[in-house]
Design a protein around this nucleic acid. Structure first.
Lengths: 191, 191
DNA sequence: CCTACCGATCGGTAGG
DNA sequence: CCTACCGATCGGTAGG
């Protein structure tokens, strides 16, 4: 049974997501694949390279989802719903990369961490854009702050990986519906 | 300059919050206090004990805040506001313990981790209680789910430590006001 | 992909 | 609180 670089990166995603970067050793990673830690170095340059690769995949998935959502026709609320649904899809379909992207960026060296900060900012900007549109056309409250309220929305979305249980009582469409209703109320509601 | 057990725990809180449990060595911790790693063992039993202590303090602070908030007279919305304001106070006034409580529980051994899970559940229960009250008296939408929407509220609150800048443009009272408006809209709003 | 290993660092202890 | 250590484990390399 021969392994590829892809196998190693996938295993790294699984283990970094489950036990964290510092909590995962190259020997752990090797064991997961049925070989020795030292054997991994014929497939990858090192542990840090694995983290960079997994995190980059998470970042790319979110950015692609945001680009698609922003291209949605209709109102600001429609695009907001598309952003929410896209985020949920990324989280549920690529949980390991998402967890690593969200929780292990701290372990990246300076350069790679800067790239993550930039990726997050671009992603947040998609939400701020939609919030501004909604404030302008009157569908959201005028006191909404695109920065602060944008963070509120993303806080809810980014937390999903921490609690959502795929085999629990809330299915994907109900999750999206509840998210959308709560967020829309938060932005438009007559609190 | 002689150190106390309290000094060591405080330093551990600072370093666990900044670099994580696995990212902090006993030698790092000693250096922070101007002594050797091995010297810490005359003040504390070990590294894990330090984590347990810091996390327990975080848990206690949140629980005390919730108890106070639930004792607030008035409507469910009033108690919700008290919960939010109490949470913000805990996060801003005890950031190290909060960060460690929220982010490093994974590094606790099984027994201590179970205690954290229980503490979190009790804290979440305070929010669920207020949500149920608000649904019953009609101030919140009938479709609100105390569990799921409670998680949404706590997701926003728990994320504050990650982005809020004490010397930034949003002061404490504005933060609480924006949180309350967003959350109340999410629960009551005519989305 | 394994064998055999490297220097560095880890949490922790004995003894003062 | 330091000196002087311990065994274990870490990421990584040389050579096959």
């Amino acid at each position: 049974m021969s392994h590829t670089r892809e196998d190693v990166i996938a295993a790294a995603g699984r283990m970094f997501a489950a036990k964290g970067y510092h909590g995962t050793s190259m020997r752990d990673l090797g064991r997961e694949l049925g070989l020795l830690g030292s054997s991994l170095y014929s497939h990858v340059g090192g542990k840090q390279e694995l983290l960079v690769e997994v995190v980059a995949r998470g970042a790319k998935l979110f950015q692609a989802a945001a680009d698609r959502a922003l291209a949605t026709e209709g109102t600001a609320a429609d695009r907001l719903r598309a952003l929410i649904a896209g985020h949920v899809d990324v989280v549920l379909d690529h949980r390991d990369e998402v967890r690593t992207f969200l929780n292990e960026a701290r372990s990246l060296d300076a350069e790679a961490r800067a790239a993550v900060v930039e990726a997050r900012d671009r992603y947040e900007e998609a939400f701020r854009t939609v919030l501004r549109e909604g404030i302008e056309d009157g569908s959201f409250r005028p006191e909404v702050d695109p920065v602060v309220d944008g963070i509120f929305v993303l806080s809810i979305l980014n937390a999903i990986e921490r609690w959502y249980d795929v085999s629990g009582p809330v299915d994907r469409s109900e999750l999206v519906a509840r998210l959308h209703r709560f967020v829309l109320g938060g932005l438009a509601g007559g609190g």
